[in-house]
Design a protein around this nucleic acid. Sequence first.
DNA 1: CTGTTAGCGCATTCAT
DNA 2: ATGAATGCGCTAACAG
Lengths: 338, 338
Amino acid sequence: MSVTIKDVAKKASVSPSTVSRVLADSDKISEKTKRKVRKVMNELGYHINYNARVLVQKSTKTIGIVMKHSASHSWHNPFFPEVLRGISTYCHQLDYSISLTTGESEESIYNEVVKMVNGKRIDGVIVLYSKKDDKVVPFLIEQQIPFVVIGKPMEHKNEIMYVDNDNVQAGKEATDFLINLGHENISFIGDNPDFQVIQDRVNGYKEALISHSLPCREEDIKYIKDNNDQSVVTELFSKNKIPTALVVSSDIQAVSILKILHEKGYKVPNDISLITFNKTFITDLAMPSLTTVNTQTYQLGYESSRCLIELINDPKMFKRSVIIPTIIESSDSHKKIN
Amino acid sequence: MSVTIKDVAKKASVSPSTVSRVLADSDKISEKTKRKVRKVMNELGYHINYNARVLVQKSTKTIGIVMKHSASHSWHNPFFPEVLRGISTYCHQLDYSISLTTGESEESIYNEVVKMVNGKRIDGVIVLYSKKDDKVVPFLIEQQIPFVVIGKPMEHKNEIMYVDNDNVQAGKEATDFLINLGHENISFIGDNPDFQVIQDRVNGYKEALISHSLPCREEDIKYIKDNNDQSVVTELFSKNKIPTALVVSSDIQAVSILKILHEKGYKVPNDISLITFNKTFITDLAMPSLTTVNTQTYQLGYESSRCLIELINDPKMFKRSVIIPTIIESSDSHKKIN
DNA sequence: CTGTTAGCGCATTCAT
DNA sequence: ATGAATGCGCTAACAG
């Protein structure tokens, strides 16, 4: 079969434990024997068997990533590859592997997470969403396995380490941005309000309106669960007082709204100004290019893996949370009025 | 520490091997003891330690997925989540886990693959691209580890199992589609020609032109490596004979071209017809919606994992390859002329 | 049907 | 600075 430390030991005329120590680069081994052993390793084509190491060290050097279920329409959001890029960059610096959990439904994802954790396949978990009625996070708490949530947890905030933007602030700034351009009739369109991020942005939107003494009406806030659903836009624009600006909770959604507005004969930014969240490749490809709140997705991923690995190495550490700043990036979808 | 089969065995008054057999649901164990043992497992909260099992069975029930390096601009292509969805659906049916390899550069990806394979962390690999001068595939061949490539391999075609569309045929059909609409001056725009998929589609494009006795000129074929680069479009449209139709190698690219055309004052489909490849959420969000060759990405992923797991279970199996059919989906970006 | 024994490949005492 | 012995948690070969 494979070459093991025993084979190396025999050929190098040392004991297996010496070879093991060379692997760990122990300072109790003389440079001379290290060289000798390493030479034999190369000759024999030796490679460590991580599974055996895991069994004795009880650390897998692997983290699990829990995504939304793939039936969710935001599965296609470019957020995902970008956050993954951030996570993997950091993980590979520290020699951690990534195990991906996906599934068609919340239930199947939950089962996979349980299997990962109970089967001891991972040292920790990054949860890529924060959603109400979610069973994964409570399970992770109960199992006392290190984990980090990207997004603000709906519950147990104080026992959970999370990495997030300040989405209330981001929602407020986005709305302020429009208000400062002279807009007074601003609507909000978001996707699934079950996610904390959407609620936060709505709250920021409301704060901005209120702090500028503008009316804040529930009927100006709409949620779209299906991108092909035009009814929301139709509703907003059939009132006698149509909005002059929209805050839209994601760039993909903005593109579909752009299309609906176009079909209805509204011009962006001339008739309607638009500001959106997340900066992805779509932001620039949209016509017109979208003014957006950059949430720095890559950083979100990078920091979350940093936090997680720290937590793995010191499970009793203080559960601090990290807020990644957002940046408004001005482009062509907004306009001053009056 | 954790509950082991020994603990269960002791409490159930059986031997550890009996517990192990219950885990495997061996038919050599009486239903009665199975029930007894399972009851104790529940009471103790026992969960199998996969690492220990891996060590003796030499099967990790994990497959590795090799992506393009994240610096590649196609990293953001929605192809990725979709193919992953297909892969994971099948994998989870058979209880396989997914280990993801990413990296900023080809070199770092290669190193990760080497670590995965040599460290015996995976049973097989799916390579999500096919590129020239790639080191990963030759390494996998040398290591004799089961693997499947999505896309047509550039070399060693006969020793490699791959899942792909017939991209030559797809390129031909796309071009035929435009020719049948009356177009005679058709250009091709593709991204990185280092990938086999682009070359195939170009060849299909050429075949279609030739079979209709239309001129086939190299200067009508352009490659864009940077989406913000307008020069290619400028070149194509500054000739005295501007094209009436374009074959574009991906939907993202089509959207950026749509934007450039719009800025230059060309209307799609009135002035220029467009056909593109891959059907993603972007296809419908584009203005106008894109006529596209659906390459059925989900199926590509699903079949590749099916092939891989078959190969893992029977490494000497015949290395057949699978071709996933493509489907032209007509939308609003094309028009009859004359 | 079930128990006993012997590893899988490595890290880690405890010696020397 | 190095070796010998032991065990991580599980499966499998051999008994019975």
